[in-house]
Design a protein around this nucleic acid. Sequence first.
DNA 1: TATGAATGAGCGTTCATTCAT
DNA 2: TATGAATGAACGCTCATTCAT
Lengths: 224, 224, 224, 224
Amino acid sequence: MDTQKTQRTRRKESRPGEILDAAFEEFVEKGFAATRVEDIAERVGVTKGTVYVYFKDKEALFDATARNVGQWLFTAMDQIHLDPATSCRDQLLTFLKEFYRIVANDRKSREILRLMLAEGRRFPGMVDRHYNEFFEPSCRRLQGIVKQGILTGEFRESNVQDMPEIFFGPSLLMTIWSLMFEEQRHFNIERYVAADLDLLMHGLATRPAASLEPIRPPSSQDGL
Amino acid sequence: MDTQKTQRTRRKESRPGEILDAAFEEFVEKGFAATRVEDIAERVGVTKGTVYVYFKDKEALFDATARNVGQWLFTAMDQIHLDPATSCRDQLLTFLKEFYRIVANDRKSREILRLMLAEGRRFPGMVDRHYNEFFEPSCRRLQGIVKQGILTGEFRESNVQDMPEIFFGPSLLMTIWSLMFEEQRHFNIERYVAADLDLLMHGLATRPAASLEPIRPPSSQDGL
Amino acid sequence: MDTQKTQRTRRKESRPGEILDAAFEEFVEKGFAATRVEDIAERVGVTKGTVYVYFKDKEALFDATARNVGQWLFTAMDQIHLDPATSCRDQLLTFLKEFYRIVANDRKSREILRLMLAEGRRFPGMVDRHYNEFFEPSCRRLQGIVKQGILTGEFRESNVQDMPEIFFGPSLLMTIWSLMFEEQRHFNIERYVAADLDLLMHGLATRPAASLEPIRPPSSQDGL
Amino acid sequence: MDTQKTQRTRRKESRPGEILDAAFEEFVEKGFAATRVEDIAERVGVTKGTVYVYFKDKEALFDATARNVGQWLFTAMDQIHLDPATSCRDQLLTFLKEFYRIVANDRKSREILRLMLAEGRRFPGMVDRHYNEFFEPSCRRLQGIVKQGILTGEFRESNVQDMPEIFFGPSLLMTIWSLMFEEQRHFNIERYVAADLDLLMHGLATRPAASLEPIRPPSSQDGL
DNA sequence: TATGAATGAGCGTTCATTCAT
DNA sequence: TATGAATGAACGCTCATTCAT
């Protein structure tokens, strides 16, 4: 009994991170408005007041949460390394497969999208940040590869070179599927990725049906 | 007096619909939890209590709202008529262009996605309904066209025939873009649609690059 | 039981006034910060929420309360009628006796001072209002009488003609006494007023000690 | 190291006093309820917990604060020395001028009044103490002078001899003025004191208008 | 002695919902 | 059918207080 009551753990350093993780789960599950600060605290095993020791208010907590998960994604994207010595086709494949890997394995990177759509109007800064730090740079990279591929003769010319965002379409669908149906409806990621890449490569290629069987996408441990 | 009463009657009969429209705007703007019943009422020009005359509670109102907008989409999809006498390629193009037309011109059909992601957990029935009435049937239709096209030799065999949902990827991206950035960031729909269809047709086609310039997508009056 | 529960009284018109009265009592007893909105509501016999039907927040309620009581005082002061046909001495006596009457009989007019001192920093507008609507005009009136009295030879010249606020000193002391000691310490108002006026008249008079016994001040029913 | 320790020691010894001073400023500015212990601590440059090392709780801190400032006043009043060899008129003048000097120069002695009115109900002991240690004895002294003056024939008989508190009226008005309007509205203390004493002396005197020009009151360095 | 992380009771405020009219 | 005054549960946030260090 005594020990119970005295269990006021002291760990200033780890607390913010713990709270941020808990907050992420709650915000993602209920949305900003329906999330109770107390539930977040409970998840961490502290009381309401503790949350306010580290965050000014619920909005600041949400903002920090969004930055926190955003960082994950930005970092992961930055770590997609493309070897300029390889063909543009390979670079494109690598980029997209890596992106699929991220999105398939990391639930956080998927839930970001939900936050974006659900709370973007209340937190426009969050949307801007993701546009500037994730979407725009990624599109630039993709566009670079496509344009280069046209120069080398690997890819045919088409409107795609000015619309690189289109490459994110299929992975987005997979993400949305995951967010909407969760564990309830099965989705064969590997075949889906294969279909996407196969379709894409054939769509972009200069030559007819090159025999480029799509490389296996990474297995998802995250239970998409 | 007569007109008065007639107006009143007409008013009464249309009330639920007016409320549903207002509710849609509010729910879409703020989300379920952050939406105030009073704001919905105000939009219609009635008082809070009136809303409760027609709807049991806020949840019922949301549910009805979701059904209401869903109906729009379901109906629109049902009206995509495909001529079996035309080529599979044309049928596919027609289907996708019609879908783009719907999604580009009708903000409601886009906002549904937001509701789905933001409130799907609270209203799983809504998600199921859309899966059953929109997504699944559409995928079946698409799959049918693809399979048929393979039989006729128009399309090559690929994983795509089992993953028809992939066709929705690019239009989904456009939708998400619209939902996230709204008027703030320009998006050239026509070229985007062209790029999508062009890429797709080349990706699916058996023969190299037949001269199938993508038909102009419908102009959007909706200001995506 | 049923009647109890159904006793949702409906009286939009009288509510604000009732609440203002209750708020006054609470604010005066506990101060702004320590007053609970719920206690105010309870005093009226409604619930917390009802208060917010009529007042935006606690500050607005305080402000309205202050205006409400202030009005009492301003009106009462305006109704002090001085007959210009009478001597300046009589006019001065009348004014002061009337003021004593107000302050002695009306607890509200006394408690205003408490609010002023206790909450003036938080509600500077309230202080300004009282200065402009009560203090300054009253001083002007008093100064007018004194100056006139000097012209007519009733009063001798002195610094007092430029410091009419000094006339409020003794009544202020009585007020403070009341606010501080309430029922606990006896205070003989009548003799106090007599002493004040007597001292004043002798202090102002040109001639020695004219036989001006101070008129009895009004009996206080308010239990100062 | 030595200086360090000495400083520390000195620091420790003076801590309660420092806290009391800080507490006074905060309580006076915000009132008891609205004052945050943390703000007091911050003023001293320590943390919240430290305050609780020296004071049991906020109430105890307030109580100590009130005693502390009260002591100032009590001591100052005790130091008003009256020469029994001088005339009663002079003694009365001396007393009042000294009191004006205290009140005009020492903000604390004025703010006490605010605490008294604002928090008197919560801390009745504070009020009693001031009554017993300041007000009552002062009135006794004043009454003594007046009665003596009547015996010596300096003062005429009047109700004032039983109502010595009236002498505090004008200085109270000055105090209230200061508390309410602070620096915002000018107040000419010297002329005000002159007017008060002049009026008083004429009011009390047996003989007509003795040529007793009021001695200059002490200049106020406190910026009333 | 001093700290500051943690607590939790408490209060202001909101808003879905009810119900008498 | 429509109103809107009233309700009261719920939640964000504050802050006095505690206590292990």
